[in-house]
């Protein structure tokens, strides 16, 4: 229990650093720290598949983000009606947190899930129905394979989208210089 709290506090601290620091490369590194903290959290919460997946995806995201920050550009600080904007943002976030807290009171306490008949079905029947030893994989690849199809399709969409955006000549006859 204590480990989860500590990891979460570390992640929040790293996130605040990522948000507030001025240098873009440090910001990306801090987000990497948040991601690795998340991977550790998945490990502590007994989700090993997710820890591996999160690590891989985190590394990919970091590479992509670092590619973007290689065009160095210092971020600007706020200007204009920034007092009003900041205050309204923070008050909106506080209202959101308070409402979330109130509704969390209705829910089962952390660590003691209730009424999970569906999960009980998966745990009891997965080996007989699918022959898989890893229940998460049997859910993701057998019972809910349709969602995994969707996830693979999303990567295809992103890839084709990036290819489309990365074209050097988009409109026939006009090179893409300054438009």
């Amino acid at each position: 229990m204590l480990e989860i709290h500590l990891i979460l506090l570390f992640m929040i601290a790293a996130a605040i650093i990522a948000v507030e620091v001025r240098d873009m490369l440090s910001s990306v590194v801090a987000v990497g720290a948040v991601g690795i903290g998340l991977s550790l959290a998945f490990l502590v919460l007994k989700a090993p598949d997710l820890a591996i997946m999160q690590l891989v995806v985190e590394i990919l995201s970091l590479i992509i983000l670092v590619r973007a920050t290689s065009h160095r550009d210092l971020p600007f600080s706020a200007s204009g009606r920034w007092v009003f904007n900041t205050v309204s943002t923070i008050s909106f976030i506080l209202i959101f947190l308070v409402c979330a807290y109130i509704s969390l009171l209705n829910l089962p306490v952390f660590g003691e899930p209730q009424l999970r008949e569906l999960s009980k079905f998966y745990i009891d029947e997965a080996r007989t129905l699918t022959g898989a030893e890893n229940i998460v994989e049997s859910i993701a690849l057998r019972f809910r394979a349709y969602d995994s199809l969707g996830e693979a399709t999303a990567i295809v969409v992103a890839t084709i989208g990036v290819l489309a955006i990365a074209r050097r000549v988009s409109i026939k006859g006009k090179a893409d210089d300054e438009r």
Binding site: A47, D49, L50, M53, R116, L118, S119, Y122, I123, A126, I135, V136, I139, A140, R144, D147, S148, E151
Partner: peptide, 8 residues
């Protein structure tokens, strides 16, 4: 196990 498959 179900939330883990979802988060995957």
């Amino acid at each position: 196990p179900l939330p883990q498959a979802v988060v995957l």
